[in-house]
Nucleic acid binder design. Structure first.
Lengths: 163, 163
DNA sequence: GGCCAATAAGATGATGCAGTCCGATTAATG
DNA sequence: CATTAATCGGACTGCATCATCTTATTGGCC
């Protein structure tokens, strides 16, 4: 459902969540740990820095770090600049004349659905995702696979394959 | 939210809904009346005929007509073959390890949201949309445009003139 | 057989996602 | 304080998909 780019962003954010507070992690380091193509990851992180989710620091010892506590960064903030969430706010059927007064047959349903979707993204923080990852690591890993491998596996297959 | 192709399909279906029962309407006629590019519309209608939503008839006096009563055709049937709805059925975050037992932070929300979305599409029939169009047509048109204009446009296009 | 209309198949343009490359900028260090 | 090495940032490229148009091909009908 979310695009690959968003997935990359979340993986990187979760990795950054584990770093010592205030520490900058470079793109290469994050890319190596998460399996995301380094150059592409750079673009994504730059965008997140621009929107205020990350701090960036150039030069030796520079890199990226969360601009705030993870619990204060919700998924919509991360994902919204990377994809077109706004289309969820428009009429599903694309009708120009569709508002609360003159509503298309799906208007009410869609209003509720899109509202809940946006709400879910807003109410879920990066801290929640990071905690989930720790939990599944315990279940899947059982100490057999290296943390990095488990980490990558978990996020693989993220995008729309036919069932 | 739905793709342009789906919207075209719905517009065509609504037009077909207004025809005398059993009558076949040609692609050019539908295109002229709905403002959908004729050649592209042909592709869409062929697809809908293949999936059993429309009947098609070749030769003189041929065209397309709904295969069933409008009230018996729901939106999911029309839209599903035209776009990738299935991605709504997967984990939003794309996690492989995400089910009722081990659920990603968005699992429950997303389950409800996607369920309601699919439900809304399933429970809304073409009849519902057609009724809505009739209503908004009254509001938008306000009797300014005569039916004859549409009628003439239709015939101009049938003679193969550019619009 | 000739006409007309549906069907199929292919070319084209636009858009957006995914990924690469190189130049600009900065901090550490001697 | 100049050099150097690390790193960001933006320009550029490839690819898939959507939307559209063009051009055959097939099939019914008088």
């Amino acid at each position: 459902m979310l695009t690959q780019t968003s997935e990359y962003a979340l993986r990187a954010m979760v990795y950054l969540a584990r770093q010592a507070e205030g520490r900058f992690a470079g793109v290469k380091e994050i890319a190596a740990a998460t399996g995301v193509p380094a150059n592409y990851l750079a673009k994504i992180l730059q965008q997140l820095a621009r929107t205020g989710v990350l701090d960036s620091q150039k030069g030796f010892g520079g890199g990226f770090r969360p601009a705030r506590k993870l619990a204060e960064i919700n998924l919509l903030e991360v994902v919204d600049p990377l994809e077109n969430i706004t289309k969820f706010r428009q009429c599903v059927l694309g009708q120009r004349l569709c508002n609360d007064a003159v509503a298309c047959p799906l208007h009410e349903s869609w209003k509720r659905i899109s509202g809940e979707y946006l709400g879910a993204l807003t109410n879920t923080t990066l801290q929640d995702v990071a905690d989930f990852r720790r939990k599944t690591d315990e279940i899947e890993g059982s100490g057999v696979e290296s943390p990095d491998k488990t980490f990558n596996d978990m996020f693989r297959n993220m995008r729309g394959e036919k069932e």
